[in-house]
Write a protein that binds this DNA or RNA. Sequence first.
DNA 1: TCTACGAATGACTGGTTAGTCAATCAACCG
DNA 2: CGGTTGATTGACTAACCAGTCATTCGTAGA
Lengths: 202, 202
Amino acid sequence: MPRTPADNQRIKDERRAAILAAARSVFVRKGLAAAKISDVAAAAGLSHGLVYHYFSSKEAMYAGLLEALFARATVELEVLAGDEGTPLERVRAFVVQRLERFSAEPEMFGLVMQAFLHRDALPSSTLAALQNFAALSMSAMTKTLADGQRRGDFVEGDPAELAAALLAVLHGLAMARSVDLELPRPLPNVALILRLIVSGVS
Amino acid sequence: MPRTPADNQRIKDERRAAILAAARSVFVRKGLAAAKISDVAAAAGLSHGLVYHYFSSKEAMYAGLLEALFARATVELEVLAGDEGTPLERVRAFVVQRLERFSAEPEMFGLVMQAFLHRDALPSSTLAALQNFAALSMSAMTKTLADGQRRGDFVEGDPAELAAALLAVLHGLAMARSVDLELPRPLPNVALILRLIVSGVS
DNA sequence: TCTACGAATGACTGGTTAGTCAATCAACCG
DNA sequence: CGGTTGATTGACTAACCAGTCATTCGTAGA
């Protein structure tokens, strides 16, 4: 045997990661349809043929990226959906967490928005993950707001409507971030965003 | 002369409009790169060759659609930027106007978001229109909020930050609308959205 | 009925790109 | 060293699609 299997595995893993990183930046800038495999290969510094040793197709790469994002975002929903702290504390923690993500990885959201906009170009498993995540976010937020309303922490009204409004601010900010990659405007602070739903603000 | 020139002109205008309508729906669903001229032609019920009697290229069609949207949206900014009514009234009127647009033409916003996400595929004049419109919205909103702050109508704080937050809700809602074309969730009411910035709410 | 003229068609071309594969390279082991 | 194995390359193929153009169609006026 040449090269230990462990070495080969390490090389493969590193290559895979390098290709995915390059792919993410190319997909974000150009979108799935306009991104060329040769762009990804060039960005990762290897020949385009080699990309096919690691990924079976352009769509598979795209789907892989998205599904990893959804998996992580689903885990991160736990902050909101769990039972650690009061509803208000959970909502605040979730908003803070999202704002931090937008700052740390503004590119991500461009990818997710593309996927939403061009849903019918997605393989069905990715579409399912997307819809599942959207439904999960909405239902976790609605439920937490309803809980908080019973304690009098949040304003009255249809909790689904409040949830839609609060998520809309977050998505709008994410969009602004991912669009202004070069000139990031500072994000509004959490207290301002929470005015939307917290009762008794001046 | 066969057919009167007026007839020909009318036919041309109708065709142009039909092609643009078909193009809008195809571009919204697929994006510029993935949209085929033959898709547009099929949706408009004519041969793909004919499309080139009316538009010089796919990009020209796309740019035409977008620039028309920006032109109209710029006019509609007058509600916010003009001097009709108090700052609070102007902001409320603007929010109402935007919510109505989202309901009436949810597709539009998908188109604009695509353009933002894939800016470097745009011809430079369209990119300029896009950036001009974004800057105009932001500055009109910031200025109006600053005026209102001096009257005590709005909460204190950097008016640009308030403007970013308020525009973010609107953009987030537009996105939700344009993404859920088939299942439109009711939009939050204006009073809820204005909580973000209006002082003295409970 | 015939003619003029623009509307309309769709076969075709040229260029581009996803994906394949035969050949080469590089590392390690005996 | 020489052999084995898998990484790597890039020329190649097949498909696709934007855009062209020679041709046909349809209408109105003579």
